[in-house]
């Protein structure tokens, strides 16, 4: 087959997959209100996707904040405006790094757990058993996990950004000697509600994308050990690309 032919074929496959994903997401959204009625299931998934990701999110937030503090201090020192470090760190974390890095970590930790769990349920006939008990697995298994992810992501991003700001303060103020009052007052003066809202909008969008991709890949995994492994890998790769592409799109729309 010629290169053009192969490109055409993979383009068609990509379109088909996108179509299947869109239909699946529409089905997820359609059954989500009923799944919300079983709030206990959603709470359990917020715990699985959110609370169990806390350690990695907090540690990463601290280190990202510390690096931001160090790099920011070095850069601002050249312009003699190290007092703006608080503003730079807060804006960077709230608008970009908080939502994006949290989403990438979420895809790696919670997304893979979701995809492999649902894939294994399929491989061990648990989803078929539900269908035979007249229980829709998309409503009972996928929707609570999807909603749990969408709720957990903004909370995790908020925690990431908060810890990150303290990390930047730790390096900037405690180690590099930036004035504490200036660090916090400049931040309070410059960071607006719109900046926080931008971060929240982004993290909800990333939570939606990462959770939908993880649930889709798990539900459609080939029911073998290799199939579940491939689905888990695809979850991380697709989610990461989706987060970065969505980030650019949303930034362009919100600026």
């Amino acid at each position: 087959m010629s290169v053009a032919g192969e490109l055409l074929l993979s383009g068609r496959e990509l379109l088909q997959k996108w179509g299947r994903f869109t239909l699946f997401t529409a089905r997820l959204l359609a059954v989500s209100p009923r799944a919300l009625g079983r709030f206990r299931l959603v709470v359990a998934q917020v715990y699985n996707a959110g609370a169990l990701s806390l350690v990695i999110i907090m540690l990463s937030g601290l280190f990202v904040g510390m690096v931001l503090g160090l790099q920011g201090y070095d850069l601002l020192r050249r312009f003699g405006s190290t007092e703006a470090l608080g503003t730079a760190a807060a804006l960077g974390l709230l608008r970009e790094l908080g939502p994006v890095v949290t989403a990438l970590l979420f895809a790696g930790r919670a997304g893979t757990a979701l995809a492999s769990e649902i894939g294994l349920m399929s491989a061990t006939d648990q989803l078929s058993a539900m269908e035979m008990m007249a229980v829709d697995p998309v409503r009972r298994v996928c929707a609570p996990r999807f909603i749990g992810g969408v709720i957990a992501m903004p909370l995790l991003a908020a925690i990431f950004s908060t810890i990150g700001i303290f990390g930047a303060q730790l390096v900037g103020v405690t180690l590099m000697g930036v004035d504490s009052g200036q660090f916090w007052s400049q931040m309070r003066g410059s960071v607006e509600l719109a900046d926080v809202v931008e971060g929240i909008i982004k993290s909800i969008a990333f939570g939606f994308a990462c959770s939908a991709i993880a649930v889709y890949e798990g539900y459609h995994a080939v029911p073998t050990a290799e199939g579940v492994g491939r689905a888990t890998t695809r979850t991380v790769v697709t989610s990461s690309v989706a987060v970065l592409a969505l980030d650019y799109t949303l930034t362009a729309m919100l600026l």
């Binding site: 078929s128 058993a129 007249a134």
Partner: peptide
């Protein structure tokens, strides 16, 4: 179909219990 399946029970080869 789901209404009909409420009148059926199925036992899978491995049990298919929810783990």
């Amino acid at each position: 179909l789901y209404r009909l399946r409420r009148r059926m029970g199925m036992l899978f080869q491995n049990g298919a219990l929810l783990t």
